[in-house]
Structure formats: C-alpha cells, structure tokens
C-alpha cells in the first residue's frame, strides 16, 4: 500500500518543530509500523537526508520504549498493543497517517519522535521498590501469598512504563502508571510493610514533576498496551487516604 506520512520533526529539545510530509510506497500489510518507518528512513538516508529519530528497542511489546501518537492515539488505533506490535494491516492504501511524539510537559522531546521519560524513573526511585538488601533473605515460601493477591499483583506488574497513560490523559496524569506500581507492592506481604510511606513518596514525586491529576475519564485504561485496570487508581487513592490519616510520617 502507498501512504502519506505526516511526521513531527524537531531537531532538538530547544528547536522549534513542525510537521513534514513523506510518501512511502509498496508497504506490505504484514510489516509492522516501525518497519514501515525503517523503510522510510532507509529511503531518506539513501537520499542523504536525516532519518526520523524514534525510540524503540525490543520490538515485541515488552520494553516500553516505542512511544508514538498515531492519528492522535497513543500506540495507534488498535487496543492492547504497543506501537511496535501495530501492523500495517490496520491501515488502508492511500491513507494519511499523522505521527507525533508523546505530548506532556514531564516528557520533553529529545529529537523528532523521541521523548525523555526519565521522570518515570524518578518516580520509581522515590519509592517503587521494597527496601531489601541482597542476600540473607528468608525462604520465599515462608510467607504464603493468597493466589488472588498474587494474580492481582501480577496484573499490575504487567505495566511496562511506556507512558501511554500520560499521553492519553488530557491532564497528563501519571496515575495509572504510579497506581500500578503502588498496587503491585501493596498487594504483596513483602511490599505491605512500607506501603504507607511508598504511596505518599511516589505521589509527592509525581506531583513535583508536573504530572496532572486524575479526573476519571479512563482514557489511560483504554490506551494502555497492557490493559492495566483503573481499579488500581482506586486502590492507590485508598492507600493514599489511609496513609495520610494513620501514617506516622507524611511526605
């Protein structure tokens, strides 16, 4: 199929960006979206032009690096997948596709379609862990975990930190991401010990970095490639409120 691509080009974080139109021909329906961009880039390099920069790594939907709005939707029109899992059979011959980087203040553009998502790392560094050292750990079976809790924790742990929730949200809220991490640990006895401190620290960091608040539109859940449920946000709100009420320490 032949396509017109309208791609956001921006030389660096400080430069002014603009949409540039490109044409690609004979794209197979079997190709992935990123392979289509590879084909475009090969043709640009052959012409001596600079290829379009975009983030990608595993190309199988698990690393969370690829981050594109395709026709205005994070990770494109299909549900439950990342950009790299999007295949060209979702598009029609002759179509114009608009491709943009994540738009959110805490995700500044690095170049073209690449954004800096280290703010997510900072949130994790603020509390997204269990404070255990390496070695001298008791047997993993010494604390049985109800299967239901393990499964719910696993549902939350499936988050790959891609940032689609932020990109989908009109408030650029990171609530789905943060609540997935908070939930994973809060549901497990190992993480329960620090639960009250963790939720306060992570929420405070999220606010500090400039992510917005949640107004319950659920756009995040609709666009999440791992289909993380908004019930995690409810769980985080409960955790947060009770921590504020009864915690010995507030942050």
């Amino acid at each position: 199929m032949d396509l017109t691509l309208k791609i956001w080009r921006q030389a660096s974080a400080k430069a002014k960006g603009q949409f540039v139109n490109y044409q690609v021909q004979n794209i197979s329906a079997e190709a992935s979206f990123l392979e289509m961009l590879d084909i475009l880039n090969e043709s640009l390099v052959a012409k001596g032009e600079e290829p379009v920069a975009f983030d990608h790594d595993c190309r199988e939907g698990i690393c969370g690096a690829c981050s594109l709005y395709i026709n205005g939707r994070p990770h494109g029109p299909d549900r439950g997948i990342t950009t790299c899992q999007m295949h060209m059979r979702n598009f029609k011959h002759g179509e114009t596709i608009i491709i943009e980087p994540w738009r959110a203040k805490p995700f500044p553009v690095i170049k073209d379609l690449m954004v800096d998502r280290s703010s997510f790392d900072e949130i994790i560094q603020a509390g997204g862990f269990v404070s255990v050292r390496t070695g001298g750990i008791p047997d993993a079976n010494s604390i049985p975990i109800p299967r239901r809790n393990a499964e719910l924790a696993m549902d939350a742990a499936a988050c790959i930190g891609c940032g689609a929730c932020v990109a989908a949200c009109k408030n650029a809220s990171a609530m789905l991401f943060v609540s997935a991490k908070v939930s994973q640990f809060a549901l497990l006895p190992q993480g329960r010990v620090e639960a009250q401190e963790r939720v306060q620290r992570m929420v405070a960091k999220m606010d500090e970095l400039g992510f917005g608040n949640c107004t319950n539109t659920y756009a995040c859940e609709a666009e999440c490639p791992k289909e993380i449920s908004v019930s995690n946000i409810a769980r985080m709100n409960r955790e947060f409120l009770s921590a504020k009420l009864i915690s010995h320490k507030t942050f």
Partner: peptide
C-alpha cells in the same frame, strides 16, 4: 534458590498455588 528468595523479597509476583506457595 537464593535468587528466587531474593526476587520474591523484592516484590516479584511469581505464580502461586491455591495454598499460597510458589
């Protein structure tokens, strides 16, 4: 075995049986 113990302590959600064991 220590690796599994370590990962469980870090909050890795390994699959559990109905009795709660790994």
């Amino acid at each position: 075995n220590s690796i599994i113990d370590q990962c469980v302590a870090q909050g890795v959600p390994f699959a559990r049986e109905y009795g709660g064991l790994l």
